[in-house]
Nucleic acid binder design. Sequence first.
DNA 1: ACCTGAACACCGTTCAAGT
DNA 2: ACCTGAACACCGTTCAAGT
Lengths: 224, 224
Amino acid sequence: MTPDTPADASARRPALTRGRIVRAAIALIEREGADALSMRRVASELDVAVMSLYNHVPNKDALLEGVAEHVVSGMELQDDPSAPWQARARALVRAFRTVAHEYPRCMTVVLTRKFHTTVGLRPAERALALAEAAGFDGVTAVRIMRALMAYALGAQMREIGFGKWLHHLDTSPAADFARLDAGEFPHVIALGPVLARHDPEADFEFGLDLLIGALEALPRAADV
Amino acid sequence: MTPDTPADASARRPALTRGRIVRAAIALIEREGADALSMRRVASELDVAVMSLYNHVPNKDALLEGVAEHVVSGMELQDDPSAPWQARARALVRAFRTVAHEYPRCMTVVLTRKFHTTVGLRPAERALALAEAAGFDGVTAVRIMRALMAYALGAQMREIGFGKWLHHLDTSPAADFARLDAGEFPHVIALGPVLARHDPEADFEFGLDLLIGALEALPRAADV
DNA sequence: ACCTGAACACCGTTCAAGT
DNA sequence: ACCTGAACACCGTTCAAGT
């Protein structure tokens, strides 16, 4: 045994890379939430001085960008171009949902960052491809892509808790519904039991069905 | 003149209240962005010691919650129950959009907070009321409300820049489109000019039309 | 009841020094 | 080329002291 040789040391603590830093950040966020992420915490997680990180990442913002891009690049975008475009559209939107379930606490970061690489273009390309296959013209294809993205993002926010405007009802339904002004919120009160029931999967599919169904009803270039 | 009497001093610097603190925070966010908001900045804006804020607001999180609630309470929710439910639904979703345009930089805060007051229930009540008027059963009404909320939130994120995954294309389209791999992004490249054109209003209305149209096609209890 | 300054335990990042 | 410690200018919040 030759302890403490450089080879040994690097085996115990592999070379610092951007990838290792990003993965440590992701692990930290999933474990303690996005608020717990700090350059200092990541550094100590990697057993390294804070400033060492700056040799591989220009600043914290860039690190968060790296986190967002890593997560999105994990989207499973296998596609069967011969399948009906409706099925392809469903699979695409669900792929975003799947990755969101894989990195639930990182989603706040993903939904909040702009991308500076092409990683965000992969889902866009898919959406445009299937819209074209469905027979829509270019302008419509772009609008379809944007509508699908809007729904995917918004539905995810609702599930995470973003935009969860009924939060105090979700947590202690019975007690809170009773306290509501019956004159102001008659429907909320009447539907209290339904609102308290949670089936995010069904909610998500309901909205997705609405959108896909609406696209089927849309006039297409192929019809002309 | 009797300078420096208590009355005079309080005239120059009105009593510190939660409302004044929240409004100062909103003004600061709209002026410099949500990242610039700190307890210390708000305090100095109000010409007051940092710790004075804590007499009216328990902590920074509560302050941000106050910001979100103030913005949402500004939603103009006038409603004509005798109007067609389609028009009422459109008006409701647009009301969110309007307030988002009024406080663009505060939206990052609104979209990111949970509410602990009933302010978020007002739009929910409206959505449920119009879904019932349209003849949908309770479970469907709740799902419609959630789908509309998801779209409103997601569409707004796209416009703000959240989830703007094509950001580097938006800023310098020509240069960047040329650099894309033609094999990987054929449709993105072909539709480059369309993608570069921005008409958020039209994009928003397109998706909203899809959803409302899909709701019209849905079977209703009234049909039975 | 409200205000405040000092202090504590944190931040991100610059810089100069090391190898 | 990569790592590092000290330092700077910030944070949010606790506490004890004032009125």
